[in-house]
Structures are given as C-alpha cells and as structure tokens.
Design a binder for these strands. Structure first.
Length: 126
RNA sequence: GGAGUCGGCCAGGCGGUCGCGGCGCCGUCAGGGCGUCGAGGAAAGUCCGGACUCCACAGGGCAGGGUGGUCGGUAACACCGACCCGGGGCGACCCGCGGGACAGUGCCACAGAGAGCAGACCGCCACCGUUCGCGGUGGUAAGGGUGAAACGGUGGUGUAAGAGACCACCAGCGGCCGGAGUGAUCCGGCCGGCUCGGUAAACCCCACCCGGAGCAAGGUCGAGAAGGAGGGCUCCGGCCCUCCGCGCGGACGAUCGAGGGCGGCCCGCCCGAGGUCCGCGGGUUGACCGCACCGAGGUCGCCGGCAACGGCGGCCCCAGAUGGAUGGCCGCCCGGCCCCUUCCGAGGGGCCGACAGAAUCCGGCUUAUCGGCCGACUCCCCCU
RNA sequence: GCCCUCGUAGCCCAAUGGUAGAGGCAGGCCCCCUAAAAGGGUCACAAGUGUCGGUUCGAGUCCGACCGGGGGCA
C-alpha cells in the first residue's frame, strides 16, 4: 500500500489485533475481490532511530512476503511496529506476527469473547 | 623497553539462498528476461558559506546583522595554511571570539576608611590636654586589615614620621631614531613625565562584508469557481481583440485620491480605480519537469609553493526514491573477551564486532563512534 | 526536507549582570466541624534555572556547542 487514503481507510474500518512487539489491522473485503492483497507498514519514531526503524520494517516486509498468499484477495493489511520490536530477533518477531494475524482473522467465525459483536467494527476501537 | 605528541587511512571478509530500486537493451495482452550501477566519514545537527530558483532592484538617508592579530588560499566563508603575540608543557606540541578602554557614555554588588580621581579605620609621627586608661588638632600613606581589583617593585637618600619628594636598576606608559620583515611584529638606542584600574560575548568607535525568501524554491499539464479559453501581432520582454466565470461578511474610496510598489523604516519617485484592502469559508493532498545532472567532479602522475592550494596532462562517469530501493536468513573465516579440557603444541563452547542510513547539490564547522593499520616526531631508562 | 520558536518548584509563570531566585494553584501543619468539603491562619520544608563549556570579580540573564519539547511550509 502506498496511499495515505488507503492507510486511513484501514485504520478506521479494519479489525485490530496485537502482540507485545507489533499490531496488525486487517480489512477483509465484503465480497471476495479480484485484486491481490496489499500490505503497508507503520514504524513510528518511538521505535528508534532511522537505522533501527528501517531494519524493523525490512524484517517485517520479508516476513510478510511469505505470508501474503494466505490473505484473502482484495484485503488490505497494515502492520504497525511497537518499540519492543526493535529488540527482538527474527524468530520471535515471526511468532508475534503469526499470532497477531491469526487473531485478526479469527473473531468473525470463532467463539466470541466477552461481548457479542454485532458488527465487527466495534472491536477495532477497543 | 616504557611514556607521550601530531597527521593520514580502514570501517570486518568470503560464500550460499530468497529479494529490492534506477538506467539500457530484448520482449509482452500482462507477468517478465539479460546486462549494469546502487549509502557515509560523519549521509547526522542544520551552525556558517556558495551554486540554483522565484520575488525585488531610479536615487539618497537612517536603522539591522555579521566578521575581527598579519599575510596568503578559495567560488565564498565564521573554514584552511603559514607566521606574530599571549598562556601551558622538560619536550614533540597544544590552547586562545586575539581591533580600540587617552572619541564619548555606562557599570564595578557585598566587604572596605576609600572603587576611579580619590580616600584615612587600625597604625606611625609632632604638638596640646590628661583623671595616665586615653582624648583633641595636624602631618603621613611605608606597615596591617577589606576586596576580583587599592594608583608601581627592590635598594638607597631623605625625614618628626613618611611619600617618585629625590637617585639607581627593573616593569609598565608615551614620543623620536636606526635595523630586519610584504605585514602583524621583533631587536637596539635616546628622551620624557614620573605610574595614568577593569569591563566592549555593556552601549559604542574603527575597518571590511551583507537585498528577501527558500527545491514544500519554482515551472508545465490536469482538476477547480476565485480565473480560463480562442484568435492576432511581436523587438520574444509582452501587447491587443472576442467570449465565459468570479462564495460570504466588513472597511475605505473617485483627483483635496482609497490603496499598491521600491520585502525593516523615512524622504523621494512611480503606478493607480468603479475598484482596493482585511477577515472567514470553499477547492487543490494528482501527474510530470526541477532531479539524479560534465560538476568550484573523482583519480593517477609531473611541476610551482614551507603549507593551505594552484597549474598541466592521462584516465573515469560515480546512488537516486516519493509510504520513500540499497535488504532478510544461513554457513565459514578474521579480531577481541570469558569459560572448560590439556599430553602446554593446542582443542572445544559461548558472547561481542561501533556510531549510524541519502532526498536539490557542493565547500566547511560541530557532534556521535567498537576496534585496527601506517607514517613522522619527543622525553626517560637499558645494551652495543 | 526546509524554516521558526521555547526550556526556571508537581503545574502555570516572574526575576536592570549583583546575597542565587517573586507570585498563583497544588502541598504540609493548625483552627473551624460529629466528620468531610468550603473557609481562616501558618510554613518554605518545594528549584539551584535542560546539559556542557566560555566571557566577567560575579551568569537564570551575555556568547558558543549539544539535548529535549512545540509549531509552520505542498
């Protein structure tokens, strides 16, 4: 993803899930689209200096390369790095990403926790 | 062998595998293939100086900012080099915002008698008085005390006690002369009055320099409602004609002139109307150029110069995006530290390998930085 | 990327270069009240001025260099 408007759309409407080192916001299409899925990354200044930020972003991009095929066509995903991601190794980062992705995809079909979500959107604002 | 000073350089290496961006060629409906290039000494902070772009450039005056030993270097600089002066170090060498305090103004708290042209608390000395404890008047500034700073230092003459009051030497100030140097300045000699504080990173004076903004500059196209479309002429700067469009609120205004320009202000000059200014609202968050660049360019050699640097010649073309490429993972080697084993040769294991990533481009400065290499030099000890 | 600003008690903020520092809110203690709030009284016990240098006899103030906030420009 390379447009600010797309990032804004996902941040508003997407489904959120997080781990210690990162958070993901996934927006699956209402009807399965034909476009390939797209991913964007957000690494803020709180994570570290320019060198640290870029290393985190590059690792995340390489991790997503192997996982992008598992996303539904037409879906948009934002991966947001937290400060803890700077200290983590490649393997742990991969675990966190897989966990967060699974959590973001689960709720609609899985057992609803705590609140009965009528529209999944409310959960994004938690 | 030990301790140290200065300068320069490097920024782990090799391989495997999966990838990314630019350009060129091939090629496709599309995807793509091949070749080639792809971070730093600080790319950083944005502190200076330029290039470049736009705006403004009749003239005069006043402000404002910057620089500050001298001579060079440079496109320019607040940078660099050499030298001078002052300070530090045994030394190699290092440090210095290093013009002017007789152009003027201001300030110098507290303490202290007195703080900038003066001054007398304790003292010292003379005279007078005395209840013999001391008090008064005058002289004095050597000694004590205060302070960051107290109006030269040492020795002598002198005196009631003293004092540049006088003398010698020294320090400092001013003037003149001679010599060396482009110059800052240095060396030497003579004379003078006898001493004349500090602060200009206080105002200021002197000399020199400086128009404003910044690539989010600026331009083209598209879109749009705040401007545009079409046509003609042109000395290429623009000019003329036709047509369509121009939200809301407020203020001022037609020659006795609203307002605008001369990017700080004033004078002065120019422009100037059925408009000008201010505020609010609305639109634009698209694409392309600028911009990936033959340049104050890099590199090698020779020459000039103490050097900074310059000249000539050969060779090279050297990152470039716009959610922003230059990478992820693995193995071996290299360097350092720690632990275990040891037949003292070594073997095994673990950890660490800095600071940090281009965004218009250059020249500097400053700041961050694990470790290593090279060269020149100084001091001390030992051996020959 | 470029430009502009600001750092003083827990918070908001004063301080001609002069003993290092004024207020307000908050806070401590006391009174009032059965108790609390409000109110009244009282205290400075709360800072060494973002950090490091320099100028000066003396720096929060003047001059550098860093550090950290905030804002603007398509």
């Amino acid at each position: 993803m390379r447009r600010s408007a797309e990032f804004g759309l996902v941040m508003r409407k997407g489904r959120r899930a997080g781990r210690e080192s990162l958070g993901v916001i996934l927006m699956a299409p209402g009807t399965p689209g034909t476009d390939p899925p797209r991913v964007g990354f957000v690494v803020s200044k709180a994570v570290g200096g320019a060198v640290v930020r870029k290393r985190v972003q590059r690792r995340l991009r390489h991790l997503m390369r192997d996982r992008i095929a598992s996303l539904q066509p037409g879906s948009l995903l934002v991966v947001r790095a937290k400060p803890a991601a700077a200290r983590l190794g490649y393997e742990t980062l991969a675990e966190h990403l897989d966990g967060a992705l699974a959590a973001a995809r689960r709720p609609r079909s899985g057992a609803p926790r705590r609140r009965k979500g009528r529209g999944g959107d409310h959960q994004a604002d938690r």
